[in-house]
Design a protein around this nucleic acid. Structure first.
Length: 264
DNA sequence: ATGCCATTGAAACAATGA
């Protein structure tokens, strides 16, 4: 089973890019972020025509998350992260697919630091920690995937010294991510590729992608029941090289349900 | 050092992103 996460940076503006990549990599499940569309303008028909069922949590202009599943419709389990009824951003959607709970998230950027946006990021992170702890307590096979807007460690940034005061790399934010992982989650990419410089985002300007001046900010966190099934975790760099593409690349993991002891 | 690029939505610019 191939599961991917992809910050598309506008699902309608980059629909051709998304469909082309779906055809090339044929993921079974996809978590999308930054739809930048309201619910009514989600391109359901085009996605269905590509063979995918979908659930989504949209918002006009900004944010927006969705989960796609090949040949089936994900079973919606949650729209919005619990813990703050006044939060109007569409940044979390969750569904069950083939017995696994998939949480698709778009964590706030938080810049500039210091400021209200940074404070919102830390509050959102705290809510995520609380909810993630609940998932582990429920002992449901779970995956939290998406754009976390955090470089977890120095090797996740091309030039860490330049990012020290950025909201994606501030100590508070790295600590929040580490605290989340320490609950018992496995960072899939880092687990299979310790010590490697791996990036998932490159700015549009100054030939960042060509220079590989990137950041690793799109992550997969696997619950203890899912982690033993992990077979591969790779960044799909090719779509990032296409014209008019997102500034993020898809990240994809493969799970092997036939693994010994798998009982999902 | 820096949104230097790019999108959306509204109104020929502002807000946002990382």
């Amino acid at each position: 089973m191939k599961i991917a996460t992809y910050n598309v940076n506008g699902i309608n503006g980059r629909l051709e890019i998304l469909l082309r990549w779906l055809k090339e990599d044929a993921p079974d499940v996809v978590c999308l972020q930054e739809l930048k569309t309201d619910d009514a303008r989600f391109p359901r028909k085009e996605i269905e025509r590509a063979g995918y069922g979908a659930i989504w949590h949209g918002q006009r202009s900004w944010n927006g998350v969705a989960i796609l599943a090949k040949g089936k419709t994900p079973i919606l389990t949650r729209r919005g992260l619990p813990g703050d009824p006044d939060d109007t951003h569409s940044r979390y959607v969750e569904a069950a697919v083939d017995g696994i709970l998939i949480g698709c998230l778009y964590l706030p950027n938080g810049n500039p630091f210091p400021g209200a946006k940074f404070d919102y990021k830390l509050r959102w992170f705290r809510r995520l920690q609380e909810y993630a702890a609940e998932l582990l307590e429920l002992d449901v096979p779970s995956i939290l995937a998406g754009d976390f807007n955090v470089m977890p460690t120095e090797i996740d940034v091309y030039k860490p010294e330049r990012w020290l005061d950025d909201a994606l790399f501030r100590p508070e934010v790295r600590k929040a991510y580490a605290h989340l992982v320490a609950q018992g989650w496995t960072d899939a990419v880092r687990h299979l590729h310790p010590g490697e410089h791996i990036y998932t985002f490159w700015k549009y300007w100054r030939n960042s992608f060509e220079r590989d001046a990137g950041l690793r900010i799109d992550h997969f966190l696997l619950s203890p029941a899912v982690a033993p099934l992990l077979r591969s975790a790779t960044v799909r760099r090719k779509p990032r090289s296409w014209a008019h593409t997102s500034d993020h690349a898809p990240v994809m993991i493969e799970l092997d349900f036939s693994a010994a002891g798998a009982d999902l």
